[in-house]
Nucleic acid binder design. Structure first.
Length: 579
DNA sequence: GCCGTTTTCGGCCCGACTGTTTTCAGTCG
Protein backbone atom coordinates (compact mmCIF):
# COMPACT_ATOMS: atom_id res chain seq x y z
CA UNK A 1 0.00 0.00 0.00
CA UNK A 2 1.28 3.35 -0.98
CA UNK A 3 0.53 5.37 2.14
CA UNK A 4 0.85 4.52 5.80
CA UNK A 5 -2.65 6.02 6.06
CA UNK A 6 -4.14 3.24 3.95
CA UNK A 7 -2.32 0.55 5.86
CA UNK A 8 -3.50 1.93 9.21
CA UNK A 9 -7.03 2.39 7.87
CA UNK A 10 -7.20 -1.24 6.77
CA UNK A 11 -5.94 -2.54 10.12
CA UNK A 12 -8.25 -0.31 12.17
CA UNK A 13 -11.23 -1.32 10.05
CA UNK A 14 -10.34 -4.95 10.57
CA UNK A 15 -9.96 -4.37 14.30
CA UNK A 16 -13.35 -2.66 14.44
CA UNK A 17 -14.96 -5.55 12.53
CA UNK A 18 -13.39 -8.15 14.79
CA UNK A 19 -14.47 -6.26 17.91
CA UNK A 20 -18.00 -6.11 16.52
CA UNK A 21 -18.00 -9.85 15.87
CA UNK A 22 -16.88 -10.82 19.36
CA UNK A 23 -19.34 -8.31 20.86
CA UNK A 24 -18.63 -6.06 23.80
CA UNK A 25 -18.48 -2.29 23.71
CA UNK A 26 -20.01 -1.31 20.38
CA UNK A 27 -18.95 2.28 20.84
CA UNK A 28 -15.32 1.28 20.98
CA UNK A 29 -15.64 -0.50 17.65
CA UNK A 30 -17.38 2.54 16.23
CA UNK A 31 -14.59 4.79 17.48
CA UNK A 32 -12.09 2.69 15.54
CA UNK A 33 -14.28 2.79 12.44
CA UNK A 34 -14.40 6.54 12.72
CA UNK A 35 -10.66 6.98 13.22
CA UNK A 36 -10.02 4.57 10.33
CA UNK A 37 -12.14 6.71 8.02
CA UNK A 38 -10.56 9.92 9.26
CA UNK A 39 -7.06 8.55 8.66
CA UNK A 40 -7.87 7.14 5.24
CA UNK A 41 -9.33 10.48 4.23
CA UNK A 42 -6.49 12.55 5.66
CA UNK A 43 -4.55 14.22 2.83
CA UNK A 44 -1.08 14.11 4.41
CA UNK A 45 0.91 10.88 4.69
CA UNK A 46 1.04 9.90 8.37
CA UNK A 47 4.63 8.75 7.91
CA UNK A 48 5.59 12.40 7.43
CA UNK A 49 3.59 13.74 10.41
CA UNK A 50 4.45 14.53 14.02
CA UNK A 51 2.44 12.57 16.62
CA UNK A 52 1.08 15.81 18.03
CA UNK A 53 -0.23 16.81 14.59
CA UNK A 54 -1.77 13.37 14.13
CA UNK A 55 -3.61 13.92 17.41
CA UNK A 56 -5.25 16.96 15.80
CA UNK A 57 -7.07 14.76 13.25
CA UNK A 58 -10.71 14.63 14.38
CA UNK A 59 -11.57 11.18 15.70
CA UNK A 60 -7.96 10.28 16.44
CA UNK A 61 -6.89 10.10 20.09
CA UNK A 62 -3.89 8.93 22.04
CA UNK A 63 -4.66 5.24 21.67
CA UNK A 64 -4.85 5.51 17.88
CA UNK A 65 -1.65 7.55 17.72
CA UNK A 66 0.05 4.69 19.59
CA UNK A 67 -1.38 2.19 17.11
CA UNK A 68 -0.20 4.27 14.16
CA UNK A 69 3.29 4.22 15.62
CA UNK A 70 3.04 0.46 16.08
CA UNK A 71 2.05 -0.02 12.44
CA UNK A 72 4.88 2.24 11.35
CA UNK A 73 7.40 0.19 13.37
CA UNK A 74 6.09 -3.36 12.99
CA UNK A 75 3.79 -3.25 9.98
CA UNK A 76 0.89 -4.65 12.01
CA UNK A 77 -1.07 -4.41 15.27
CA UNK A 78 -0.68 -6.91 18.06
CA UNK A 79 -4.30 -6.43 19.12
CA UNK A 80 -5.48 -7.36 15.62
CA UNK A 81 -3.17 -10.38 15.48
CA UNK A 82 -4.61 -11.67 18.75
CA UNK A 83 -8.19 -11.39 17.53
CA UNK A 84 -7.27 -12.98 14.20
CA UNK A 85 -6.21 -16.03 16.20
CA UNK A 86 -9.74 -16.29 17.62
CA UNK A 87 -11.78 -15.30 14.57
CA UNK A 88 -10.62 -16.76 11.24
CA UNK A 89 -10.40 -14.16 8.46
CA UNK A 90 -13.13 -16.01 6.59
CA UNK A 91 -15.63 -15.11 9.28
CA UNK A 92 -15.00 -11.42 8.73
CA UNK A 93 -15.20 -12.02 4.98
CA UNK A 94 -18.69 -13.50 5.48
CA UNK A 95 -19.87 -10.08 6.64
CA UNK A 96 -19.40 -8.91 3.06
CA UNK A 97 -22.38 -11.06 2.11
CA UNK A 98 -25.31 -8.63 1.92
CA UNK A 99 -27.76 -9.38 4.71
CA UNK A 100 -25.20 -11.12 6.87
CA UNK A 101 -23.77 -9.13 9.76
CA UNK A 102 -21.45 -9.77 12.67
CA UNK A 103 -23.95 -11.61 14.87
CA UNK A 104 -25.04 -14.22 12.37
CA UNK A 105 -21.46 -14.60 11.14
CA UNK A 106 -20.41 -15.50 14.67
CA UNK A 107 -23.36 -17.86 15.13
CA UNK A 108 -22.45 -19.62 11.89
CA UNK A 109 -18.87 -19.95 13.03
CA UNK A 110 -19.67 -21.19 16.53
CA UNK A 111 -22.69 -23.40 15.85
CA UNK A 112 -21.85 -24.76 12.40
CA UNK A 113 -18.09 -24.38 12.30
CA UNK A 114 -18.45 -22.33 9.12
CA UNK A 115 -15.42 -20.08 8.71
CA UNK A 116 -15.29 -18.98 5.08
CA UNK A 117 -17.59 -17.73 2.35
CA UNK A 118 -17.16 -20.99 0.48
CA UNK A 119 -18.17 -23.06 3.51
CA UNK A 120 -21.10 -20.72 4.00
CA UNK A 121 -22.27 -21.32 0.45
CA UNK A 122 -22.01 -25.08 0.90
CA UNK A 123 -23.95 -24.93 4.18
CA UNK A 124 -26.65 -22.70 2.72
CA UNK A 125 -27.05 -24.88 -0.38
CA UNK A 126 -27.29 -27.96 1.83
CA UNK A 127 -30.07 -26.26 3.80
CA UNK A 128 -28.15 -26.36 7.03
CA UNK A 129 -28.82 -22.75 8.03
CA UNK A 130 -32.56 -22.58 8.62
CA UNK A 131 -32.50 -24.59 11.84
CA UNK A 132 -30.04 -22.29 13.58
CA UNK A 133 -31.43 -19.97 16.26
CA UNK A 134 -32.42 -16.64 14.70
CA UNK A 135 -32.30 -18.13 11.20
CA UNK A 136 -35.19 -19.31 9.09
CA UNK A 137 -36.09 -20.24 5.54
CA UNK A 138 -36.16 -16.65 4.34
CA UNK A 139 -32.84 -15.84 5.94
CA UNK A 140 -31.27 -18.81 4.20
CA UNK A 141 -32.75 -17.65 0.89
CA UNK A 142 -31.50 -14.10 1.44
CA UNK A 143 -28.01 -15.34 2.22
CA UNK A 144 -28.00 -17.41 -0.96
CA UNK A 145 -29.06 -14.35 -2.90
CA UNK A 146 -26.38 -12.28 -1.16
CA UNK A 147 -23.80 -14.88 -2.11
CA UNK A 148 -24.85 -14.57 -5.74
CA UNK A 149 -24.44 -10.78 -5.64
CA UNK A 150 -21.04 -11.19 -4.05
CA UNK A 151 -20.03 -13.85 -6.56
CA UNK A 152 -20.73 -11.51 -9.47
CA UNK A 153 -17.87 -9.33 -8.22
CA UNK A 154 -15.67 -12.09 -6.82
CA UNK A 155 -11.99 -11.59 -7.32
CA UNK A 156 -12.57 -8.24 -8.93
CA UNK A 157 -11.21 -5.00 -7.54
CA UNK A 158 -12.87 -1.61 -7.70
CA UNK A 159 -11.12 1.14 -9.64
CA UNK A 160 -9.85 2.92 -6.53
CA UNK A 161 -8.17 -0.19 -5.13
CA UNK A 162 -6.80 -1.24 -8.50
CA UNK A 163 -5.48 2.23 -9.34
CA UNK A 164 -3.58 2.69 -6.10
CA UNK A 165 -2.12 -0.79 -6.43
CA UNK A 166 -1.14 -0.10 -10.05
CA UNK A 167 0.46 3.20 -9.05
CA UNK A 168 2.45 1.46 -6.35
CA UNK A 169 3.65 -1.33 -8.64
CA UNK A 170 4.63 0.94 -11.52
CA UNK A 171 6.35 3.47 -9.24
CA UNK A 172 8.48 0.71 -7.73
CA UNK A 173 9.37 -0.89 -11.06
CA UNK A 174 10.27 2.44 -12.68
CA UNK A 175 13.04 2.80 -10.10
CA UNK A 176 14.58 -0.54 -11.01
CA UNK A 177 17.87 -0.07 -12.94
CA UNK A 178 17.38 -0.92 -16.59
CA UNK A 179 13.63 -0.17 -16.59
CA UNK A 180 13.00 2.11 -19.55
CA UNK A 181 9.22 2.43 -19.21
CA UNK A 182 6.50 1.02 -17.01
CA UNK A 183 2.75 1.54 -17.34
CA UNK A 184 -0.42 -0.33 -16.58
CA UNK A 185 -2.60 -1.60 -19.42
CA UNK A 186 -5.64 -3.91 -19.48
CA UNK A 187 -9.14 -3.10 -18.32
CA UNK A 188 -7.79 -0.64 -15.75
CA UNK A 189 -6.36 1.50 -18.54
CA UNK A 190 -9.72 1.25 -20.30
CA UNK A 191 -11.29 2.36 -17.01
CA UNK A 192 -13.83 -0.39 -16.77
CA UNK A 193 -15.89 -0.15 -13.57
CA UNK A 194 -14.02 -3.01 -11.92
CA UNK A 195 -11.00 -5.06 -12.91
CA UNK A 196 -10.44 -8.81 -12.66
CA UNK A 197 -6.66 -8.57 -12.83
CA UNK A 198 -3.98 -5.97 -13.23
CA UNK A 199 -1.77 -5.90 -16.35
CA UNK A 200 1.55 -4.12 -15.94
CA UNK A 201 3.90 -3.61 -18.85
CA UNK A 202 7.59 -2.74 -18.61
CA UNK A 203 10.20 -2.08 -21.28
CA UNK A 204 13.73 -3.34 -20.63
CA UNK A 205 16.52 -5.29 -22.30
CA UNK A 206 16.90 -7.57 -19.27
CA UNK A 207 13.78 -8.68 -17.40
CA UNK A 208 15.49 -10.31 -14.41
CA UNK A 209 15.87 -7.23 -12.15
CA UNK A 210 12.24 -6.25 -12.83
CA UNK A 211 10.92 -9.70 -12.08
CA UNK A 212 12.91 -9.80 -8.87
CA UNK A 213 11.58 -6.45 -7.70
CA UNK A 214 8.06 -7.41 -8.75
CA UNK A 215 7.78 -10.63 -6.73
CA UNK A 216 9.35 -8.83 -3.72
CA UNK A 217 6.58 -6.21 -3.58
CA UNK A 218 4.97 -6.09 -0.12
CA UNK A 219 1.53 -6.56 -1.64
CA UNK A 220 2.48 -9.91 -3.19
CA UNK A 221 1.23 -12.99 -1.34
CA UNK A 222 1.88 -15.72 -3.91
CA UNK A 223 3.84 -16.15 -7.14
CA UNK A 224 1.71 -18.03 -9.68
CA UNK A 225 4.17 -18.26 -12.61
CA UNK A 226 7.46 -16.59 -13.36
CA UNK A 227 9.45 -16.64 -16.60
CA UNK A 228 11.61 -14.32 -18.66
CA UNK A 229 8.75 -12.35 -20.24
CA UNK A 230 5.81 -12.94 -17.97
CA UNK A 231 5.35 -13.16 -14.22
CA UNK A 232 2.00 -13.51 -12.45
CA UNK A 233 1.38 -13.00 -8.75
CA UNK A 234 -1.59 -12.83 -6.44
CA UNK A 235 -2.01 -10.23 -3.70
CA UNK A 236 -3.23 -10.99 -0.20
CA UNK A 237 -6.58 -9.55 -1.27
CA UNK A 238 -6.79 -12.14 -4.06
CA UNK A 239 -6.12 -9.88 -7.04
CA UNK A 240 -3.87 -11.25 -9.78
CA UNK A 241 -1.16 -8.99 -11.23
CA UNK A 242 0.57 -9.89 -14.50
CA UNK A 243 3.89 -8.29 -15.36
CA UNK A 244 5.10 -8.47 -18.97
CA UNK A 245 8.55 -7.28 -19.86
CA UNK A 246 9.03 -6.35 -23.51
CA UNK A 247 11.83 -4.95 -25.63
CA UNK A 248 11.59 -1.16 -25.88
CA UNK A 249 11.18 -1.27 -29.67
CA UNK A 250 7.98 -3.33 -29.22
CA UNK A 251 6.47 -1.01 -26.61
CA UNK A 252 3.65 0.41 -28.73
CA UNK A 253 2.47 -2.93 -30.11
CA UNK A 254 2.61 -4.48 -26.63
CA UNK A 255 0.58 -1.63 -25.13
CA UNK A 256 -2.07 -2.04 -27.83
CA UNK A 257 -2.16 -5.80 -27.33
CA UNK A 258 -2.30 -5.78 -23.52
CA UNK A 259 -4.72 -2.87 -23.26
CA UNK A 260 -7.33 -4.71 -25.28
CA UNK A 261 -10.17 -5.20 -25.25
CA UNK A 262 -10.11 -8.59 -26.88
CA UNK A 263 -12.83 -7.52 -29.31
CA UNK A 264 -10.90 -4.37 -30.21
CA UNK A 265 -7.72 -6.39 -30.81
CA UNK A 266 -9.53 -8.86 -33.05
CA UNK A 267 -10.88 -5.95 -35.08
CA UNK A 268 -7.37 -4.50 -35.46
CA UNK A 269 -5.85 -7.84 -36.43
CA UNK A 270 -8.55 -8.45 -39.02
CA UNK A 271 -7.86 -5.01 -40.44
CA UNK A 272 -4.14 -5.81 -40.55
CA UNK A 273 -4.70 -9.12 -42.37
CA UNK A 274 -6.72 -7.34 -45.05
CA UNK A 275 -3.76 -5.01 -45.60
CA UNK A 276 -1.34 -7.90 -45.94
CA UNK A 277 -0.01 -7.34 -42.42
CA UNK A 278 0.19 -9.28 -39.17
CA UNK A 279 -0.37 -7.67 -35.77
CA UNK A 280 0.89 -9.23 -32.55
CA UNK A 281 2.17 -7.99 -29.20
CA UNK A 282 5.62 -7.74 -30.83
CA UNK A 283 4.67 -5.43 -33.65
CA UNK A 284 2.93 -4.92 -36.96
CA UNK A 285 4.73 -6.92 -39.65
CA UNK A 286 4.62 -7.28 -43.41
CA UNK A 287 3.34 -10.76 -44.22
CA UNK A 288 5.60 -11.31 -47.24
CA UNK A 289 8.90 -9.80 -46.14
CA UNK A 290 8.45 -10.17 -42.41
CA UNK A 291 9.68 -6.59 -42.04
CA UNK A 292 8.48 -4.54 -39.08
CA UNK A 293 6.01 -1.91 -40.24
CA UNK A 294 5.35 -0.33 -36.83
CA UNK A 295 5.82 -1.21 -33.15
CA UNK A 296 7.55 1.50 -31.12
CA UNK A 297 4.52 3.60 -30.17
CA UNK A 298 0.78 3.09 -30.16
CA UNK A 299 0.41 6.05 -32.53
CA UNK A 300 2.74 4.33 -35.04
CA UNK A 301 0.76 1.10 -34.90
CA UNK A 302 -2.61 2.77 -35.36
CA UNK A 303 -1.26 5.05 -38.10
CA UNK A 304 0.16 2.09 -40.04
CA UNK A 305 -3.33 0.57 -39.94
CA UNK A 306 -4.75 3.81 -41.37
CA UNK A 307 -6.24 4.82 -38.05
CA UNK A 308 -6.01 7.77 -35.70
CA UNK A 309 -4.81 6.85 -32.19
CA UNK A 310 -7.82 5.57 -30.26
CA UNK A 311 -8.23 6.51 -26.59
CA UNK A 312 -8.13 3.35 -24.39
CA UNK A 313 -11.60 4.06 -22.96
CA UNK A 314 -13.09 3.58 -26.44
CA UNK A 315 -11.37 0.28 -27.26
CA UNK A 316 -14.37 -2.02 -27.01
CA UNK A 317 -15.21 -2.58 -30.68
CA UNK A 318 -18.27 -0.40 -30.39
CA UNK A 319 -17.60 1.53 -33.58
CA UNK A 320 -14.36 3.22 -32.55
CA UNK A 321 -12.25 1.54 -35.25
CA UNK A 322 -14.65 2.63 -37.99
CA UNK A 323 -14.72 6.14 -36.51
CA UNK A 324 -10.93 6.29 -36.37
CA UNK A 325 -10.71 5.15 -39.99
CA UNK A 326 -13.13 7.87 -41.05
CA UNK A 327 -11.38 10.52 -38.96
CA UNK A 328 -14.54 10.86 -36.91
CA UNK A 329 -13.45 9.93 -33.40
CA UNK A 330 -15.48 11.91 -30.87
CA UNK A 331 -14.07 14.77 -28.85
CA UNK A 332 -14.24 13.31 -25.35
CA UNK A 333 -14.85 14.92 -22.01
CA UNK A 334 -11.64 14.96 -19.94
CA UNK A 335 -10.81 15.34 -16.27
CA UNK A 336 -9.09 18.63 -17.07
CA UNK A 337 -12.29 19.79 -18.72
CA UNK A 338 -14.29 19.59 -15.50
CA UNK A 339 -14.88 23.06 -14.10
CA UNK A 340 -16.49 22.02 -10.86
CA UNK A 341 -17.96 19.36 -8.61
CA UNK A 342 -21.67 19.37 -7.80
CA UNK A 343 -21.88 16.60 -5.17
CA UNK A 344 -19.65 16.74 -2.08
CA UNK A 345 -19.95 16.38 1.69
CA UNK A 346 -18.40 17.87 4.81
CA UNK A 347 -18.21 16.83 8.45
CA UNK A 348 -21.56 18.54 8.99
CA UNK A 349 -22.96 15.14 7.98
CA UNK A 350 -20.91 12.06 7.19
CA UNK A 351 -17.82 13.62 5.62
CA UNK A 352 -14.56 13.60 7.54
CA UNK A 353 -13.22 17.01 6.50
CA UNK A 354 -14.36 20.49 7.49
CA UNK A 355 -16.03 22.90 5.08
CA UNK A 356 -12.88 25.02 4.96
CA UNK A 357 -10.61 22.04 4.24
CA UNK A 358 -12.88 20.77 1.46
CA UNK A 359 -13.00 24.23 -0.12
CA UNK A 360 -9.22 24.62 0.04
CA UNK A 361 -8.74 21.21 -1.58
CA UNK A 362 -11.33 22.04 -4.27
CA UNK A 363 -9.57 25.31 -5.03
CA UNK A 364 -6.30 23.43 -5.45
CA UNK A 365 -8.02 21.43 -8.20
CA UNK A 366 -8.57 24.67 -10.09
CA UNK A 367 -12.36 24.57 -10.09
CA UNK A 368 -14.45 27.52 -11.24
CA UNK A 369 -17.36 26.45 -9.04
CA UNK A 370 -17.91 24.01 -6.22
CA UNK A 371 -21.08 22.80 -4.53
CA UNK A 372 -21.34 21.65 -0.93
CA UNK A 373 -24.23 19.17 -0.78
CA UNK A 374 -24.57 17.69 2.67
CA UNK A 375 -27.33 15.19 3.48
CA UNK A 376 -30.90 16.28 4.15
CA UNK A 377 -32.98 15.40 7.25
CA UNK A 378 -34.88 12.37 5.93
CA UNK A 379 -31.64 10.38 6.11
CA UNK A 380 -32.26 10.29 9.83
CA UNK A 381 -28.87 9.04 10.87
CA UNK A 382 -27.27 12.26 9.63
CA UNK A 383 -29.33 14.41 12.02
CA UNK A 384 -29.67 17.35 9.69
CA UNK A 385 -31.84 20.28 10.75
CA UNK A 386 -33.01 23.48 9.06
CA UNK A 387 -30.87 25.46 11.47
CA UNK A 388 -27.70 23.51 10.73
CA UNK A 389 -28.24 23.82 6.99
CA UNK A 390 -28.89 27.55 7.17
CA UNK A 391 -25.87 28.10 9.40
CA UNK A 392 -23.72 26.28 6.85
CA UNK A 393 -25.14 28.46 4.11
CA UNK A 394 -24.37 31.62 6.09
CA UNK A 395 -20.81 30.41 6.64
CA UNK A 396 -20.42 29.59 2.96
CA UNK A 397 -21.63 33.08 1.99
CA UNK A 398 -19.08 34.58 4.40
CA UNK A 399 -16.34 32.56 2.76
CA UNK A 400 -17.38 33.56 -0.78
CA UNK A 401 -14.58 35.40 -2.53
CA UNK A 402 -11.96 33.80 -0.32
CA UNK A 403 -11.12 31.10 -2.84
CA UNK A 404 -9.93 33.05 -5.84
CA UNK A 405 -12.17 32.69 -8.86
CA UNK A 406 -13.94 29.62 -7.43
CA UNK A 407 -17.65 30.27 -6.97
CA UNK A 408 -19.14 28.59 -3.91
CA UNK A 409 -22.54 26.95 -4.33
CA UNK A 410 -24.73 25.90 -1.44
CA UNK A 411 -26.54 22.68 -2.15
CA UNK A 412 -27.87 19.54 -0.56
CA UNK A 413 -28.26 15.87 -1.32
CA UNK A 414 -31.96 15.19 -0.89
CA UNK A 415 -33.49 11.79 -0.27
CA UNK A 416 -36.01 10.51 -2.78
CA UNK A 417 -38.75 8.89 -0.73
CA UNK A 418 -40.60 5.75 -1.86
CA UNK A 419 -43.25 7.89 -3.59
CA UNK A 420 -40.76 10.26 -5.22
CA UNK A 421 -41.09 13.11 -2.74
CA UNK A 422 -38.00 14.78 -1.26
CA UNK A 423 -37.05 16.43 2.03
CA UNK A 424 -38.24 19.98 2.73
CA UNK A 425 -41.01 22.08 1.21
CA UNK A 426 -40.51 24.02 -2.01
CA UNK A 427 -39.86 27.34 -0.22
CA UNK A 428 -36.92 25.87 1.63
CA UNK A 429 -35.58 24.09 -1.45
CA UNK A 430 -35.66 27.35 -3.39
CA UNK A 431 -32.91 28.67 -1.11
CA UNK A 432 -30.34 26.21 -2.46
CA UNK A 433 -28.13 26.92 -5.46
CA UNK A 434 -28.17 23.25 -6.47
CA UNK A 435 -30.10 20.18 -5.30
CA UNK A 436 -28.94 16.63 -5.91
CA UNK A 437 -31.63 14.04 -5.13
CA UNK A 438 -30.78 10.40 -4.52
CA UNK A 439 -32.28 7.06 -3.53
CA UNK A 440 -31.04 5.94 -0.11
CA UNK A 441 -33.81 3.57 0.97
CA UNK A 442 -36.50 1.15 -0.20
CA UNK A 443 -34.14 -0.52 -2.65
CA UNK A 444 -36.41 -3.51 -3.04
CA UNK A 445 -39.52 -1.75 -4.40
CA UNK A 446 -40.90 -3.05 -7.68
CA UNK A 447 -40.13 -1.61 -11.09
CA UNK A 448 -43.31 0.45 -11.44
CA UNK A 449 -42.74 2.06 -8.05
CA UNK A 450 -39.05 2.81 -8.63
CA UNK A 451 -39.75 4.22 -12.08
CA UNK A 452 -42.54 6.47 -10.82
CA UNK A 453 -40.31 7.49 -7.95
CA UNK A 454 -37.42 8.65 -10.14
CA UNK A 455 -39.69 10.34 -12.67
CA UNK A 456 -41.43 12.30 -9.93
CA UNK A 457 -38.04 13.40 -8.60
CA UNK A 458 -37.09 14.61 -12.10
CA UNK A 459 -40.33 16.54 -12.29
CA UNK A 460 -39.58 18.40 -9.07
CA UNK A 461 -38.61 21.90 -10.23
CA UNK A 462 -36.03 22.17 -7.43
CA UNK A 463 -34.18 18.96 -8.24
CA UNK A 464 -31.29 19.57 -10.64
CA UNK A 465 -29.35 16.32 -10.51
CA UNK A 466 -30.37 12.73 -9.73
CA UNK A 467 -27.48 11.36 -7.68
CA UNK A 468 -26.18 7.79 -8.22
CA UNK A 469 -29.42 6.93 -10.07
CA UNK A 470 -29.30 3.13 -9.87
CA UNK A 471 -28.25 3.13 -6.18
CA UNK A 472 -26.11 0.06 -6.79
CA UNK A 473 -22.92 -0.60 -4.84
CA UNK A 474 -20.33 -2.40 -6.95
CA UNK A 475 -20.24 -6.00 -5.77
CA UNK A 476 -22.46 -5.26 -2.79
CA UNK A 477 -25.91 -4.22 -3.83
CA UNK A 478 -27.78 -4.78 -7.06
CA UNK A 479 -29.20 -1.74 -8.85
CA UNK A 480 -32.81 -0.85 -8.16
CA UNK A 481 -35.27 -2.20 -10.72
CA UNK A 482 -36.19 0.66 -13.06
CA UNK A 483 -37.70 1.21 -16.49
CA UNK A 484 -34.66 3.19 -17.58
CA UNK A 485 -35.92 4.44 -20.96
CA UNK A 486 -38.89 6.02 -19.17
CA UNK A 487 -36.62 7.70 -16.62
CA UNK A 488 -34.19 8.89 -19.30
CA UNK A 489 -37.09 10.42 -21.22
CA UNK A 490 -38.29 12.19 -18.07
CA UNK A 491 -34.80 13.52 -17.28
CA UNK A 492 -34.43 14.88 -20.80
CA UNK A 493 -37.92 16.39 -20.82
CA UNK A 494 -37.54 18.13 -17.45
CA UNK A 495 -33.96 19.30 -17.84
CA UNK A 496 -32.73 17.16 -14.97
CA UNK A 497 -29.14 15.95 -15.13
CA UNK A 498 -28.30 12.37 -14.25
CA UNK A 499 -25.19 11.85 -12.22
CA UNK A 500 -22.12 9.87 -13.17
CA UNK A 501 -20.96 9.25 -9.63
CA UNK A 502 -17.21 8.62 -9.65
CA UNK A 503 -16.91 7.03 -6.20
CA UNK A 504 -15.21 3.70 -7.00
CA UNK A 505 -17.75 1.74 -4.98
CA UNK A 506 -20.65 3.27 -6.91
CA UNK A 507 -19.72 4.06 -10.56
CA UNK A 508 -23.33 5.03 -11.09
CA UNK A 509 -24.70 5.48 -13.74
CA UNK A 510 -22.61 2.87 -15.54
CA UNK A 511 -21.36 3.22 -19.10
CA UNK A 512 -24.24 1.30 -20.71
CA UNK A 513 -26.87 3.41 -19.00
CA UNK A 514 -25.01 6.58 -19.94
CA UNK A 515 -24.95 5.56 -23.59
CA UNK A 516 -28.69 4.96 -23.58
CA UNK A 517 -29.44 8.13 -21.63
CA UNK A 518 -27.32 10.23 -23.95
CA UNK A 519 -29.22 9.08 -26.98
CA UNK A 520 -32.41 10.07 -25.15
CA UNK A 521 -31.03 13.61 -24.85
CA UNK A 522 -30.01 13.51 -21.20
CA UNK A 523 -27.26 15.72 -19.71
CA UNK A 524 -24.88 14.48 -17.04
CA UNK A 525 -22.99 15.69 -14.02
CA UNK A 526 -19.69 13.92 -13.23
CA UNK A 527 -19.27 14.19 -9.46
CA UNK A 528 -16.99 12.94 -6.72
CA UNK A 529 -19.53 12.35 -3.92
CA UNK A 530 -16.41 13.12 -1.84
CA UNK A 531 -16.54 12.53 1.90
CA UNK A 532 -12.89 13.57 2.32
CA UNK A 533 -10.43 15.80 0.49
CA UNK A 534 -8.65 12.87 -1.15
CA UNK A 535 -11.94 11.66 -2.61
CA UNK A 536 -12.23 14.89 -4.57
CA UNK A 537 -10.11 13.00 -7.13
CA UNK A 538 -12.98 10.52 -7.75
CA UNK A 539 -14.20 12.27 -10.94
CA UNK A 540 -11.24 10.72 -12.80
CA UNK A 541 -13.19 7.45 -12.66
CA UNK A 542 -16.48 9.09 -13.61
CA UNK A 543 -14.74 10.63 -16.61
CA UNK A 544 -13.69 7.11 -17.59
CA UNK A 545 -17.32 6.00 -17.60
CA UNK A 546 -18.31 9.11 -19.55
CA UNK A 547 -15.61 8.50 -22.15
CA UNK A 548 -16.64 4.86 -22.45
CA UNK A 549 -20.08 6.22 -23.36
CA UNK A 550 -18.53 8.62 -25.88
CA UNK A 551 -19.60 11.75 -24.00
CA UNK A 552 -18.24 15.09 -25.09
CA UNK A 553 -17.96 18.30 -23.04
CA UNK A 554 -21.35 19.49 -24.21
CA UNK A 555 -23.06 16.49 -22.60
CA UNK A 556 -21.62 17.22 -19.16
CA UNK A 557 -23.01 20.21 -17.28
CA UNK A 558 -20.02 20.63 -14.98
CA UNK A 559 -17.69 21.26 -17.91
CA UNK A 560 -19.79 24.29 -18.76
CA UNK A 561 -18.91 27.87 -17.84
CA UNK A 562 -20.82 29.15 -14.82
CA UNK A 563 -23.27 31.32 -16.76
CA UNK A 564 -24.38 28.37 -18.88
CA UNK A 565 -24.60 26.06 -15.86
CA UNK A 566 -26.58 28.71 -14.00
CA UNK A 567 -29.21 28.72 -16.75
CA UNK A 568 -29.42 24.93 -16.55
CA UNK A 569 -29.96 25.14 -12.79
CA UNK A 570 -33.07 27.22 -13.45
CA UNK A 571 -35.42 24.53 -14.64
CA UNK A 572 -38.01 25.37 -17.24
CA UNK A 573 -41.62 25.71 -16.07
CA UNK A 574 -43.50 22.47 -16.30
CA UNK A 575 -47.14 22.04 -17.17
CA UNK A 576 -49.31 22.34 -14.07
CA UNK A 577 -49.75 19.20 -12.04
CA UNK A 578 -46.45 17.64 -12.99
CA UNK A 579 -44.25 19.25 -10.37
C1' DG B 1 -11.95 4.81 22.08
C1' DC B 2 -13.02 9.84 21.42
C1' DC B 3 -14.88 14.03 22.77
C1' DG B 4 -16.57 18.00 25.25
C1' DT B 5 -17.49 19.80 29.12
C1' DT B 6 -22.89 20.98 32.73
C1' DT B 7 -14.49 19.12 31.73
C1' DT B 8 -11.89 13.46 33.94
C1' DC B 9 -17.51 11.10 33.11
C1' DG B 10 -21.21 10.10 30.33
C1' DG B 11 -22.79 10.05 25.93
C1' DC B 12 -21.81 8.54 21.54
C1' DC B 13 -26.56 7.57 14.96
C1' DC B 14 -31.51 6.65 15.05
C1' DG B 15 -35.32 4.79 12.62
C1' DA B 16 -37.05 1.40 9.35
C1' DC B 17 -37.34 -2.95 7.66
C1' DT B 18 -37.16 -7.97 7.75
C1' DG B 19 -37.77 -12.14 9.54
C1' DT B 20 -37.98 -14.20 13.41
C1' DT B 21 -40.52 -14.15 16.91
C1' DT B 22 -44.91 -13.75 20.30
C1' DT B 23 -41.95 -8.94 21.95
C1' DC B 24 -37.51 -8.61 19.54
C1' DA B 25 -32.74 -9.28 17.26
C1' DG B 26 -30.13 -8.39 13.33
C1' DT B 27 -28.98 -5.57 9.51
C1' DC B 28 -28.79 -1.45 6.97
C1' DG B 29 -28.16 3.33 5.64
Amino acid sequence: MARLNDQVQALLEEYADLLTIIGGDAFRARAYEKSARAIGGWPTDLAAMDPKDILEIPGVGKSTVGKIDEVRRTGTLEAVEKLRAKIPPGVRAMMKVPGLGPKRALTLHQDLGVSSVDELRAAAEAGRLHDLPGFGGRTEENILHGLAVLHAAAGRADLGTATSLAEEVTATLRDVPGCLRCEWAGSLRRLRESVGDLDVLAAAHDSAPLTEAFVALPAVAEVIVSGPTKTSVRTAAGLQIDLRVVAPEAWGAAMVYFTGSKAHNIKLRTRAVRAGLKLSEYGLFDNETGATVASATEEDVYAALGLAWIPPTLREDLGEVEAAAAGELPVLVTERGLRGDLHTHTDLTDGVASLEDMLAAAKARGYAYYAVTDHAPDLVMQRMTDEKMLAQRARLRELAGGYGRMRLLHGTELNIGPNGSVDWPAEFLAGFDVCVASVHSHFGADRATQTRRLIRACENPHVHVIGHPSARRVGRRAPIDVDWPAVFAAAARTGTALEINGAPGRMDLNDEHVRAARSAGVRFSIDSDAHSTVQLANPRFGVGTAQRAWLGPDDVINTWPWQKLKRFLTKPDLPAGQA
